[in-house]
């Protein structure tokens, strides 16, 4: 992506998904392990947050690993051109 940008968009997305995965996983734990009341949603017994949190975390870590900035650190940004103006 944006080959002249040092950090890929996928790295940003991976970082956010990792954090989201952790948050969603953590807030879904009390009903499972601390006998807190189940959230007032349909199919609460499936603990969708627990599994979705793990999925987001896994997806996020994968993106962070694959698009870690140091992997593209050696690449200098391309010289950007001025906007060509064929309408002139």
């Amino acid at each position: 992506m944006g080959e002249d940008a040092r950090i890929s968009i996928w790295f940003f997305i991976g970082s956010l998904l990792t954090l989201y995965g952790i948050i969603i996983f953590v807030v879904s734990l009390p009903p499972i392990f601390l006998s807190a009341p189940e959230p007032n949603v349909v199919l609460a017994r499936l603990h969708a947050g627990f599994w979705w949190g793990i999925l987001l975390f896994g997806l996020g870590v994968m993106y962070v690993y694959l698009f870690w900035p140091s992997k593209t650190e050696g690449e200098e940004p391309e010289e950007q051109k001025e906007l060509s103006d064929p309408e002139d």
Partner: peptide, 11 residues
């Protein structure tokens, strides 16, 4: 609101 519990709703 029907299906998404805490955290998921924020997402």
């Amino acid at each position: 609101a029907r299906y998404l519990g805490p955290g998921l709703l924020g997402l």
